Simulated scan of single mutants.
Amino acid sequence: MIDWIPADERLPFDGAGVVAAVTGRYPAEPGADPVTGPEFWIVLPMYFRDVHPVEETGEVVLNCFVDSDRVLRRPPGGGTDEVVTHWAYWPNLPGTDVRKIVGEGVGPALRAVSDQ
């Protein structure tokens, strides 16, 4: 079960990998009013930044969620077309209380869950 946190109540720590519930509108037909495209609400893998420099423009954006295509989305009232309504931390690795294992601990952790 995922513990969804409203994005307008609390934000993750800087650099956190999260899943985010994002709402917005798909693009409308060419030449149509942009607000006529269908609405969506989807879950996307993202990471959170307290301060995010935009390389292309030199702009600095505060408190934003960034996806793998470097699209920025913000909580409600943040001024982005697509809005993060809720977020949740990624789950821990199976049989552990951590999200990441590097180095010598990987083998024992994998063996522990494969022996179950």
Rank of each mutant, 00 (worst) to 15 (best):
residue 26 Y to V: 03
residue 7 A to T: 04
residue 20 A to N: 03
residue 39 E to C: 00
residue 78 G to V: 05
residue 28 A to W: 03
residue 59 E to R: 13
residue 40 F to N: 03
residue 60 V to C: 01
residue 38 P to C: 02
residue 72 L to A: 06
residue 96 T to D: 09
residue 13 F to K: 10
residue 107 G to C: 09
residue 79 G to I: 08
residue 12 P to H: 10
residue 42 I to D: 13
residue 81 D to I: 07
residue 20 A to E: 03
residue 32 A to D: 13
residue 110 L to I: 15
residue 10 R to L: 11
residue 109 A to C: 10
residue 96 T to W: 03
residue 116 Q to Y: 06
residue 91 P to Y: 10
residue 24 G to N: 04
residue 67 D to P: 09
residue 109 A to E: 09
residue 76 P to K: 11
residue 106 V to Q: 10
residue 25 R to W: 00
residue 29 E to S: 07
residue 89 Y to V: 09
residue 36 T to Q: 13
residue 90 W to H: 11
residue 56 E to T: 10
residue 7 A to R: 07
residue 9 E to F: 02
residue 77 G to V: 03
residue 70 R to T: 08
residue 61 V to I: 15
residue 41 W to S: 13
residue 92 N to V: 13
residue 91 P to A: 11
residue 57 T to I: 02
residue 16 A to H: 01
residue 37 G to A: 06
residue 7 A to D: 02
residue 96 T to I: 08
residue 88 A to V: 12
residue 106 V to R: 15
residue 7 A to N: 01
residue 98 V to G: 04
residue 12 P to W: 09
residue 2 I to Q: 11
residue 27 P to N: 12
residue 53 P to Y: 08
residue 87 W to D: 06
residue 83 V to P: 06
residue 82 E to F: 00
residue 105 G to D: 15
residue 41 W to F: 12
residue 44 L to V: 05
residue 66 V to A: 07
residue 54 V to R: 07
residue 33 D to L: 11
residue 51 V to H: 10
residue 97 D to C: 11
residue 49 R to C: 06
residue 92 N to G: 04
residue 115 D to M: 12
residue 5 I to W: 03
residue 112 A to V: 09
residue 63 N to A: 13
residue 33 D to I: 07
residue 32 A to C: 04
residue 80 T to L: 04
residue 83 V to N: 08
residue 61 V to D: 07
residue 106 V to W: 12
residue 107 G to Q: 13
residue 29 E to M: 06
residue 24 G to V: 03
residue 24 G to K: 02
residue 76 P to D: 10
residue 39 E to Y: 04
residue 15 G to C: 11
residue 14 D to Q: 10
residue 83 V to C: 06
residue 85 T to G: 12
residue 50 D to N: 14
residue 82 E to Q: 15
residue 113 V to G: 07
residue 113 V to R: 13
residue 70 R to A: 12
residue 36 T to F: 00
residue 58 G to W: 01
residue 42 I to F: 04
residue 2 I to T: 15
residue 2 I to L: 09
residue 4 W to E: 01
residue 26 Y to D: 11
residue 92 N to L: 04
residue 114 S to H: 12
residue 112 A to F: 02
residue 74 R to L: 11
residue 85 T to V: 14
residue 87 W to K: 08
residue 94 P to L: 14
residue 8 D to S: 10
residue 53 P to I: 10
residue 91 P to K: 11
residue 36 T to I: 00
residue 102 V to I: 15
residue 99 R to M: 09
residue 55 E to K: 14
residue 47 Y to W: 12
residue 58 G to L: 05
residue 33 D to W: 01
residue 42 I to G: 01
residue 100 K to C: 14
residue 108 P to R: 06
residue 35 V to F: 13
residue 107 G to V: 15
residue 6 P to W: 00
residue 55 E to C: 01
residue 31 G to M: 04
residue 16 A to R: 00
residue 5 I to E: 05
residue 111 R to P: 06
residue 104 E to I: 07
residue 100 K to S: 14
residue 116 Q to P: 00
residue 78 G to M: 09
residue 41 W to K: 12
residue 64 C to A: 15
residue 21 A to N: 08
residue 101 I to W: 00
